[in-house]
Design a protein around this nucleic acid. Structure first.
Lengths: 195, 195
DNA sequence: ATGAAGTTAGTGAACGTTAACTACTATTGT
DNA sequence: ACAATAGTAGTTAACGTTCACTAACTTCAT
């Protein structure tokens, strides 16, 4: 896990902005240099290649996802932690719409062979986080013992991804936190067997 | 809705194959012509531009999704129709893995301004189909009256999208129909209030 | 004889990347 | 205190390649 310079982080953030606005096809060294206000070769002072930039971008997203998950309290009912996790996720994405546009856009990166494994890991991360909490919920008898928590994690994680994607397609014109919380609560109400 | 020539359909299918294998970045007129075994200019005998090909590709996916949905019986419990719809979807995608790789890859097409509206419509299509069936289910008292069927459709549609995406990332190494049916059944069991 | 579908050859523009050089700053030996 | 040295981050110019696309010509079935 290499430590990045501040300039490298600026470049990654500029890359995220470009991809979120125009898609991967418009992400070129040229567009990136213009976004940063420097010449194209100057970028090569900070990264060896374009692919290296994308790799660093993916690591940034990975670290960001882990950081979000690590912020949830860690005690109390597992379902409450689940709700807290996604609320925080929505909040963070709403604060940084460009990240929201990119974080679930896996297929965008899949063409580059070198990046495939990292993309994969990123997709699995949210699913695994969710599955783990649901397993706890099952152990605590918060949810039925006979449902597959991996299936549930697929539905929940997939639903969240779709919601974030549509929010981006709508240019962030509605409140992601609000709508997102409703979806999460709808889901939790379905599986919660306490009371 | 323009009628396509057989050659145009061949070109669209070749395009889907390339994008599913290599991603949108490797989808060029050159790679397309090689896939078809003809020269690059020959393609322009059938489409005016590269964007026109992508537009036709999206229309193809749109029509395909509608066709799948129209095949479900239309009578019986709405939840059974829902299950039938997704089973058929999984079956069709498993038969054509290249289509599976592309049909839910919206962000891949979002850069081209001309295509954005069509992409949007394609995303909404599955959600709307699902929502409609869930509204029926609610009217028939198959599911609780106080859950938002649009939230449910987001979860279900999103879960299916994620599952199909992961199936593609795993190069179709597991059985999509089987795994998919399990997820759908898990979902239906959560919302079904009949017994 | 015509029109559809192919070819070869070539266009300008954009691609990622490298070479050669410069301004500025920090470190260091005297 | 200060010149020599080295490192950092930028520049312009140019590399060879690929991009989408066009012009002009050929082949061939109707």
């Amino acid at each position: 896990m290499p430590v990045l310079t501040s300039r490298q982080n600026e470049i990654i953030e500029a890359a995220i902005r470009i991809i979120s606005r125009k898609g991967i096809q418009e992400f070129t060294i040229r567009s990136l240099s213009r976004e940063l206000g420097i010449s194209e070769p100057a970028i090569y002072r900070h990264f060896e290649s374009k692919t290296d930039i994308l790799a660093a971008l993916l690591e940034f997203l990975h670290a960001d996802t882990i950081a979000t998950f690590d912020t949830v309290s860690g005690d109390g009912p597992a379902l409450a932690q689940l709700e807290q996790y996604f609320s925080l996720l929505f909040l963070r994405l709403q604060e940084r719409p460009a990240v929201a546009a990119v974080v679930f856009s896996d297929e965008v990166f899949l063409n580059e062979e070198r990046l495939a494994a990292t993309v994969r890991a990123l997709v699995e991360l949210t699913i695994d986080n969710t599955t783990r909490l649901l397993t706890h919920a099952k152990q605590n008898a918060e949810i039925p013992a006979d449902v597959d928590e991996y299936d549930l994690a697929t539905l929940l994680s997939g639903g969240v991804r779709l919601l974030v994607r549509r929010w981006h397609m709508d240019s962030g014109s509605w409140n992601l936190c609000e709508r997102g919380s409703r979806v999460i609560q709808t889901f939790i109400r379905l599986i919660d067997i306490r009371t």
